[in-house]
Design a protein around this nucleic acid. Structure first.
Lengths: 230, 230
DNA sequence: CGGCATGTTGAAACGTTTCAACGAGAGTGG
DNA sequence: CCACTCTCGTTGAAACGTTTCAACATGCCG
């Protein structure tokens, strides 16, 4: 079943970058080793329940994975930022819809390439498993949040997550990759409630909002205690 | 820590059953090929954030995966039924706590065995990926449910899931693997709300409840329309 | 039978949603 | 430069659904 030789199609060669070590700095865009896909704001990358041909990795920008409920409500499952991968499912069809939030640059890899890379390069297997495993863990975090946290807790949690463990004593500026509506759909709230929660944090001087897309965390300790229900 | 010996430890041999094809009937308990672990009601199998040494597969009974929030609230992430696997994470520590709901029979496999099985038996890789992938998809379903569905919708969804696609015209009896409290914690509701939702369905003659652990779906169509928000 | 865990129901309190109005900023064209 | 429009964000007040707290019912086991 495996006539060795160069089983990995030429188009795949560059896509090994898909599995390069993370945390070893951002992808070097001066030495592009494969086709970068540029996609403009709002474009649908793929749709829920359609056949899954490709996997993706975000190079620049942000992508939202969401599901549309029969009555038009929308749940955002994940906001993918640079270095994140999506569309890795092993089932026939995509398990969510993927859309570009702003202009986005992606790395795209055909699924059969991934399969072959796995056969030929053992480290790719581990990488693949850990990507999926991390995704699962993130989804579980999300479930725990939606199941039993109040609006204020959810908003505080999300801000802390964006700050990504920078639990410094000083003020820390977070750039929001998404607008209020997306934030609301991610947190399982309405846009109004999301807004009110932010206003609340602002009134308590825990955060400040110099502009729409920026939030400055003024008091990490207080934000953490809000995130855990006072 | 691991005195090597033969590459796949003897204890693992039987645990290949871990990856046998599903849908090919239940595990044959007359020909046990490995150690079956019997665990009694309420026992903690492993705890969230403790080092992950083993993976498990449910043979009999039900297991709940949950997280305890700092303030004592609990979110159940998954109810594992016979054939389901859990504890497959690739991170160092378990991503949730696992507890036996009733008396339970499990298949247990050390993680290093899984790793070696993967190296030696290609089909195990695909199996492993599809197990994780399925788990991810289930978690995403859960997120979508908790994010934007009302109590009645959640309860209806859960019942339909338990019925497992048996969308027959006739009445169908579902055996609840869990009590009301676990159901509530899974659905992100209180036990009272869960109860009231069930009573509602009963009042509308969509279900009937001959006893605590049984629910008879009398009207699939109506249950589905409740699940989708009327 | 009592004792205990589990399930059910009621009424008030609470938080989120809904609906509506308004504000701020970016882009366009006069 | 200003008015215009369009999208996005913010705030208020009432409506709604879920939670909370309390009481009671049921089933099981010693």
């Amino acid at each position: 079943m495996q006539p060795a030789m160069s089983r990995v199609p030429a188009a795949c060669a560059g896509d090994c970058r898909f599995f390069r070590e993370e945390g070893s700095g951002p992808i070097d865009r001066n030495k592009p080793a494969g086709p970068l896909l540029k996609i403009s704001r709002g474009t649908t990358i793929y749709q829920h329940e359609q056949p899954a041909h490709f996997c993706y990795k975000v190079v620049e920008g942000a992508v939202r994975l969401s599901r549309l409920l029969p009555d038009g409500r929308r749940q955002i499952l994940e906001i993918c930022l640079p270095q994140d991968t999506f569309g890795l499912e092993t089932s026939e069809c995509y398990s969510a819809t993927a859309e570009a939030i702003g202009d986005v640059v992606l790395l795209r890899c055909p699924r059969e390439c991934i399969a072959e890379l796995q056969d030929e390069r053992p480290h790719v297997r581990g990488k693949m498993l850990s990507m999926l495993s991390r995704g699962l863990c993130a989804a579980q975090d999300h479930v725990a949040m939606l199941g039993h946290q109040s609006a204020k807790e959810r908003v505080a949690c999300y801000l802390l997550r964006l700050a990504g463990g920078h639990e410094s004593q000083q003020a820390y500026t977070v750039r929001l990759p998404i607008g209020r509506q997306d934030m609301a759909d991610y947190l399982g709230l309405t846009i109004e409630t999301t807004c009110r929660s932010l206003s609340d944090l602002k009134a308590k001087r825990i955060i400040s909002t110099p502009d729409r897309h920026c939030i400055v965390i003024q008091n990490f300790a207080a934000l953490e205690s809000v995130a855990q229900g006072d």
